[in-house]
Nucleic acid binder design. Sequence first.
RNA 1: GGCCCGUUCGUCUAGGGGUUAGGACAGCAGAUUUUCAAUCUGCCAGCAGGAGUUCGAUUCUCCUACGGGCUACCA
Length: 498
Amino acid sequence: MKNENIRVRFAPSPTGFLHIGSARTAFFNWLFAKKMSGVFVLRIEDTDIERHKEDTIDLIMDSLKWLGITWDEGPDIGGIFAPYRQSLRKEIYNQYAQKLIAEKRAYRCFCSPDKLEEKRKASTKDKGSDFLKYDRECLKLTDEDIANNLQYGRNYTIRLLVPDDREINFTDIAYGKISVNSKIVEDFIIIRSNGLPTYNFSVAIDDIQMKITHVIRGEDHLSNTPKQLLIYDALNSELPRFVHLPMILGSDGQKLSKRHGSISIEAYRDEGFLPEAIQNYLALLGWAYDEKTTIFSLEELVAKFSLEDINKKPAKFDYEKLLWLNGGYIRNTDDKILSKLIYGRLIKSAPQKNTDIVSGINMAKIEKIIPLIKERMRTIKEACELISPFFYKVRYAEEIKNFFENEKSEAANILNNTITVLEAFSDNQTTSITFKSSLIEPELKKIADKLGINLRKVAEVVRIALWGAKVSPPLFGTMEILGRTETLNRLKAYSENF
RNA sequence: GGCCCGUUCGUCUAGGGGUUAGGACAGCAGAUUUUCAAUCUGCCAGCAGGAGUUCGAUUCUCCUACGGGCUACCA
């Protein structure tokens, strides 16, 4: 049962992918809606026709869905306050604007952008580099002037008439009491000359009209809030509660951008992060439940989340911690699900024609591999890299070829012993000496004992030969899955180095 | 420039007039181990600076510094 008394919204502008910071904002809104059994609205703020990119709307919605964020009202599913795209709500904004003009709370401005630019320049010269605001030239226009201008079809914008000297006060749930004097805000434009509203106007109108009760958004909007408050006031509307979320910054404290690595939710999905891990990590950016809990299930998050616990300090994005969290979530994920994810990625990245394939990429095999690597993967991508030699021929890098340069005879001896022992195994699963890890291990241990060395040393030589790398999944299990034939092929191929 | 906001280990944070300032990630060391991980144990590390209030400030107030945001016919 939805509680209509709690309505929140996430209002992205469709200019690109879903940014990690926007995702956090969306998620906090969603968490709050879930906790309160409220309504979560998705609204597209596409009033800037220049920057707007149509296909990013689907991109954003896909990312949200992948993250587990669903909405009760939105552009795709409609709702009682449809439409949910601002570009389709032009009439609504204009009605409000006309009302404000009629009540002398707003006025038409016929100044062209060029003219405004001149004014700004002139003003800068006069008063140094001080703050400059619109000089209200068009406020002085008589009704006759306006009628004339209108008749000539001159372009105009609509500006809000801002009170000269008034304290604007509001309480932000995270930031506390905030107070700004209206004298520092100019008569800002609410309707552009193309008839579309500007952000501060459309956001206020929509939040009023859609009966939004809690505005949860990034801290970059904190400074815009007084302007919106002025609109609420001009319209005599009830205020929502405001909650601003601290910014998410890059590791150097600068605004999160491409050079900090991945910043789109899409990218994290492609790298093989699980949505649960992203949710958990995002929740920890600007919010904390208590002094020790860091791992939360979604249910716990919904239950424990509270706007009052949101903090104000900007948070730096810590990729390492995300990796750690993701590893934890992977270990708790069902093998079948992991198999599918790995399978999907492997297939996607597989070269079209590849003569190096030693084994078809199939689910059954991947499912067998999972237990070997589950504890050592932090992302699906990492897993794929680690297990790639199961499917592709080993390519020995120079450093690996010459790995035993200084101990050639010992390495050759180990390898030859191993080959001899393994050849005694049967490929036939029904005989007693099947090629199983539990049976392979003691045999290699015997070799180690015989040569008076550590099993570790034996494993090192065999691993390099078998995997072409210093690191591999557990050796014996790897050999079992690879099979006797392929295992021996690789060992023999490598022994030719000596 | 003006206005708004912020500042606890490298990072995310808990705390809050008297605490050995707590946890987690990372780092380091050890245990375990066929590698790498995982796991466990231990270690390292912090209240931006200066005044004031107070018996006592990391906590309250002010100033400074630093950081961020807004100041568009962007959102």
